[in-house]
Simulated scan of single mutants.
Amino acid sequence: MEEIYQLETLEELKQFIAQKTAHALRPTLLEAYARLLQYKNIEEWNQLVRICESLSLTGWGEEEPQEALASKWINGAFYTVLQNKNFEAKEGTSQSWRKQNDSYVLDGKDVDLTAYSATKLASQRNKLPKAPIRYSRSGNYQKSLQPLIDQLDTLKTLLIQETQPERYGHGFSYIGINLYFSNHDDQHHTVRHEYYHEEEDVPEELKNAQDNLPLYSIRPRLKISNLSTKEHELRLLVTRYFTKEFGFKTVQEQKQILREDFLEIIDQLAIKLQKKKIAYDTSLFKEDVERIFELWR
């Protein structure tokens, strides 16, 4: 087991495991996993990450697969956690860290303050296949959008539970979509804002905005980035800008527009992946998303 901890790259880890019998190696890995779940220092956390990477290669058997992630809170402090393919944290595994000299120690009382040699919190590189569409939305939005906003979490759950990322391929990870809504009628005038897709669509009175009138921006309907890699995941980032007219439509009309947007984005993904000669079943992916929107009607 010590040899696994010394391997630096995923390729070295794959080669090491390829020389073993997965069925024979798995029990030893699971024993180490159980022992390290209650990690108390950076050394144990980094070992847990390597064990999870190894189990991702050998298979987890009857144990629920987990991925070991290190990330940052909004204040910049690190935290670590185990999560499953549904983004659900494993109970008791989320911990916060603080800097100590060149390393990190757990944030709390009676923690291990040993000066370990590790200077970086490891994070799993071969992540679990998870929902290939993930989205966030602007915190502010026009009042008429509330019925749709109330149903967006249901769509997110369906995308997590009903997509089949393990069947699409390993060459691509996810589409990240930012939904930016106009917010022309906020009670706080200073945060009012509208999006327009063309300059000629902006009313004259808005171009000369005075107090109590919303500001505006000219943005494309869809802003689709190039493929990019972050934390060992190939992704496509997209921003969708909505005019206030979207908010005046019925919820069913809004859902239909979102459906068309998502399918168009998948079509664009297919083109980009084909150009890069990356194998990924966007046809099955698209079929699943069409089915999900039918469930969301």
Rank of each mutant, 00 (worst) to 15 (best):
Y196C: 07
Y195E: 01
R125L: 15
T282E: 09
E67Y: 01
T229S: 09
R259A: 07
L263F: 04
R297E: 15
I175T: 10
S144E: 14
L37P: 06
I175V: 15
L69G: 05
H170S: 13
E2S: 07
A279L: 14
E12Q: 15
Y33P: 03
V49N: 02
S182Q: 09
K20G: 05
I160Q: 13
R291E: 08
Y195M: 01
G59Y: 07
L237W: 00
A209T: 04
Q66G: 00
F78D: 11
K127S: 08
L213S: 04
I218G: 00
S94C: 13
E12W: 00
R26P: 08
E198M: 01
D110L: 12
E44H: 01
I278N: 11
P220C: 02
A118T: 04
N46T: 12
D261V: 06
K130L: 03
F293P: 13
A209G: 03
Y141W: 07
L236D: 07
K130M: 14
D107F: 12
R235F: 00
I74F: 10
L295V: 08
Y174G: 06
P132F: 06
E63D: 11
Q6K: 14
K127M: 03
I4E: 08
R219P: 01
Q146K: 14
V191T: 11
V111G: 10
T9N: 07
Q66L: 10
E43W: 05
Q268A: 13
S144C: 02
P147F: 08
N86L: 14
L258H: 04
L113C: 11
L145K: 04
N183T: 05
Y39C: 09
L234N: 10
G108M: 02
P132G: 09
Q66V: 12
L145S: 09
R235L: 02
Q100R: 14
A77P: 00
S94H: 12
F248V: 14
L284Q: 07
V49T: 12
K230H: 09
I160K: 14
Y195L: 01
F87I: 04
L152W: 07
T28H: 07
A279T: 15
K275T: 15
E31C: 05
Y241F: 11
E231T: 11
E43L: 03
K255C: 05
Q95P: 01
P27A: 02
I257V: 13
K277G: 01
T163V: 09
D107Y: 12
